[in-house]
Design a protein around this nucleic acid. Structure first.
Lengths: 122, 122
DNA sequence: AGACTAATTGCGAATATTTCGCAATAATGC
DNA sequence: GCATTATTGCGAAATATTCGCAATTAGTCT
């Protein structure tokens, strides 16, 4: 059965306290060197498939992860990389896509990310 | 000055004829072994920065590229990976995000991808 | 056409990211 | 405490991407 190990607690804690989605390397760094990189990879793989965390892609070379709380999106500063959550949710978004589609019979998820310049980056 | 080489013509052609965004490996495969992988990487890097092609992320491990024609989104089948373009465009999307944001002063782009099940995958 | 210049390519090595196998460790049930 | 077995550490693949440099070649000028 699934076990509550110290490493996983630490990793979950790191993700919970994070102000924005983290890369595997960042998670490992925050968790401390005592947590092996492989352990982080295995942990996020499990947590992802069990749904407790979500993977986010911003077009960077590496994916980021965040605790899967309320559904939301992000705005990423293309200058400094800072990230802010946004909850803007166009009504009927997925339905509209499905109506237009000719090849799909269902749409069950979507990802929406914005790119802009934050106030700190003049 | 920028040169029109054979390799680049081939790569552009491959992307133009593609029915869906391709990975670097797929581009290379279609272009033929005579085109070195480094050349593909360099070509897509240039084309991306000059804006003739766009990078697309579907949550897979590798990014995909498509010719940067009319702005649009995609629906990806989570079962077979098939991809269809969709042009659904919620009105005032970026503006809405900016209004809600506290940290950003401008939003100049967004990515929107849908995930579902296509009709072929019962 | 021939020569020249600089952009581009091929190649191999260097990085970086992620996955895997396996022995050692440790969490849970009794 | 003991047994069972999930989990971890570790190093070795596998995969993806970048880089330096010498060789090639497109574009320009004569």
């Amino acid at each position: 059965m699934k076990r509550t190990t110290n490493d996983r607690k630490v990793i979950q804690e790191v993700l919970s306290k994070a102000q924005q989605p983290l890369t595997v390397r960042e998670i490992r760094k925050s968790a401390g060197q005592s947590v092996h990189l492989s352990t982080v990879y295995r942990a996020i793989t499990e947590m992802s498939s069990e749904g407790s965390i979500r993977r986010v892609d911003f077009g960077g070379r590496v994916p980021r992860y965040e605790v899967a709380g309320e559904h939301h999106h992000h705005i990423v500063c293309t200058t400094c990389g800072d990230i802010e959550d946004v909850h803007t949710e166009p009504r009927g978004l997925e339905k509209a896509a499905l109506v237009e589609s000719k090849k799909f019979k269902s749409v069950h998820a979507h990802s929406l990310e914005f790119f802009g310049v934050c106030k700190k980056c003049t």
